[in-house]
Design a protein around this nucleic acid. Structure first.
Length: 388
DNA sequence: AATCGATACAACCGCTCCGAA
DNA sequence: ATTCGGAGCGGTTGTATCGAT
């Protein structure tokens, strides 16, 4: 399907923008919004193509763009995310408050890539160069790639939520990524921010210390990682599944005051095996505090809850079994169980925030709650709209 | 002062994705 | 199911600036 380039029309200007053009574009968008980019130039009195206008706006004129030198924290975030995501600049950009993908891409190409190479690392794999992988290493790389694949699905979902949230309000944006407090030049900068992206992986590995062979993923203080799990499942399946929905997330905290026990229920209408009793089919319902385990034999994901019986014998009550579990889930669980230390050093803090206390009057825990709470708020109608 | 190479960054190009018709 | 156009993304190019010679 051939399509003519948008700037091929005679008389449309190309090249650097003049101050006058900038002012025209800015004034028009401030007054009317951009609307259809293609229709914008004549209305704004510009002899440019819509695409050129859009780029000028998104990469330069937008008032919320952060310009200037990248901080050490931003650099390290970019490197970490690039290792995980590769050249997905827009996704990476969503994790750095108010930096454009173009700016990050340029900064990578002109600074960071060289830095990585200087350190003797491959800028693509982020592994030592001149180090031909042996059999085991090949497998390791494959497994890491597996992890990255799974995690990137989650990242993209989250990035989308963050992007969408930016359309909602500035207040919301501030809550998601509060600006770091100013640092006196003599003070050593805080450690780099730790991407939220890896919290689910962390749970996979066991938040409470030693790796857990039972690989619980949902039991994360009863808080939104259930949502993450759902996102990932949806992501792995590829196209959005209208039938996989999150029901009743009413119990999540909406204030910063307390973590209450959520009443969230996950509903997997056709992915979970149903149970029958007296001829009536029951769909299992799941609380966010439920634990999802992978059982090697017969190779399925089961959802249930830990129970303590009267005689203090711990047990696990199976509520449901995922039928037709995507094979990727099995593979990835198996892969991740081999990497107990992969998540060392990451936390579930909001993206863009420093690990040092943020100067917004809230504790780290409160910030976490606020962050997740806002993500849920951003999901306008979680019962009806798929996350992907 | 002139030249040249390196660097930084704005802008363009071509492609893909997605939703509407 | 297919076509089409709008929008976004990532790769690449063009150009201004800076510093060394």
């Amino acid at each position: 399907m051939g399509r003519s380039a948008c700037c091929e029309k005679v008389g449309l200007k190309k090249g650097p923008w003049t101050r006058e053009e900038d002012e025209k574009l800015l004034a028009y968008i401030q007054q009317h919004g951009h609307g259809s980019w293609r229709a914008l130039p004549p209305k704004a009195g510009l002899k440019r193509c819509g695409k050129s206008c859009r780029l000028r706006w998104t990469n330069y004129l937008r008032p919320d763009i952060k310009r200037g030198k990248f901080s050490l924290q931003e650099e390290q975030t970019i490197i970490q995310l690039h290792a995980l995501l590769g050249n997905r600049w827009s996704t990476i950009a969503s994790y750095l408050s108010n930096r454009t993908d173009n700016e990050i891409k340029n900064y990578w190409n002109t600074h960071l890539k060289k830095k990585i190479i200087k350190m003797g690392l491959d800028p693509i794999t982020h592994k030592p160069r001149n180090h031909a992988p042996g059999c085991g290493q090949t497998k390791d790389i494959a497994n890491l790639s597996h992890m990255a694949q799974w995690e990137s699905a989650r990242l993209e979902a989250e990035a989308r939520i963050v992007r969408e949230s930016k359309l909602v309000s500035n207040v919301y944006r501030y809550t998601i990524a509060p600006p770091p407090p100013p640092q006196p030049s003599s003070v050593v900068p805080p450690p780099p921010s730790r991407p939220t992206c890896l919290d689910v992986l962390k749970v996979w590995q066991g938040v409470w210390g030693t790796p857990r062979k039972d690989a619980t993923i949902a039991n994360f203080n009863g808080l939104p990682p259930c949502l993450d799990v759902l996102k990932v499942w949806q992501g792995i399946w590829g196209t959005p599944r209208k039938d996989v929905t999150i029901a009743n997330f009413n119990g999540f905290p909406t204030s910063n005051t307390a973590i209450t026990s959520p009443t969230s229920i996950l509903k997997f209408s056709d992915s979970m095996a149903t149970t029958s009793k007296n001829g009536v089919t029951h769909e299992p319902s799941f609380a966010s505090s439920d634990i999802i385990n992978y059982v090697e034999s017969p190779g399925a994901c089961v959802v249930g809850r830990n129970i303590t019986s009267d005689n203090n014998q711990d047990g696990y009550h199976v509520k449901g079994i995922m039928k037709n579990s995507p094979p990727q889930i099995h593979d990835m669980i198996a892969d991740w169980l081999r990497y107990p230390s992969f998540l060392e050093g990451f936390s579930d803090l909001p993206p863009g925030s420093a690990t040092a206390p943020v100067d917004n009057g809230l504790s780290e825990e409160d910030n976490k709650i606020s962050y997740w709470s806002n993500i849920l708020t951003a999901l306008d109608s979680p019962m009806d709209s798929p996350v992907f």
